[in-house]
C-alpha cells in the first residue's frame, strides 16, 4: 500500500488524518512542520503528501517548493483553511497537485489521496 506523509502542526489534525488514512490501509508517516516534512520526504520518499499551510519552523508553501525542488515528481496536496486562497493558488502554480479545504471530511481526504497516488 502506498505511503502518505501527513504534515500538520496541530496534533489533532494529524491524528485525524492519519486515522482516516490508516483505516483505509495506507502507511502513514507524520511531520509537524515544513522542515520536518522535507527531511522525512527525503528519507522515506512517500507516494503522496498532505501538507498543511500554516506551520511554525517552515510553512507549507515553502516546504512544497523544497520538496518539489528535491523531487520534481513529488505529489503534494495542500490542506488549507478558508481565507488562504492566494496561497493555495501560489501552491498550485508551484506544483501542488490538489488541495483540500479544512475541515476535511474523510471521504474527501481518501478521494484526494487515491487520485494523488494514481
Amino acid at each position: 500500500m502506498a505511503t502518505i506523509l501527513v504534515v500538520d502542526d496541530a496534533a489533532f489534525m494529524r491524528m485525524r488524518m492519519s486515522k482516516i488514512l490508516a483505516e483505509a490501509g495506507y502507511e502513514v508517516i507524520q511531520a509537524e512542520n515544513g522542515l520536518e516534512a522535507v527531511e522525512k520526504y527525503k528519507a522515506s520518499k512517500p507516494d503522496a503528501v498532505l501538507m498543511d499551510i500554516t506551520m511554525p519552523e517552515m510553512d507549507g508553501l515553502t516546504a512544497l517548493k523544497e520538496i518539489r525542488g528535491h523531487d520534481p515528481q513529488a505529489r503534494v496536496a495542500m490542506v488549507t483553511a478558508l481565507g488562504q486562497q492566494q496561497i493555495v493558488l501560489e501552491a498550485v502554480k508551484s506544483g501542488a497537485k490538489d488541495f483540500l479545504v479544512k475541515p476535511c471530511e474523510g471521504d474527501r481526504v481518501l478521494a484526494a489521496v487515491s487520485k494523488l497516488c494514481a
Partner: peptide, 13 residues
C-alpha cells in the same frame, strides 16, 4: 467546491 477559482486554474493548467 469551496475554492472554485483555484479549480478553474487547475483546469487551465
Amino acid at each position: 467546491c469551496q475554492l472554485p477559482s483555484i479549480r478553474g486554474f487547475q483546469v487551465l493548467q
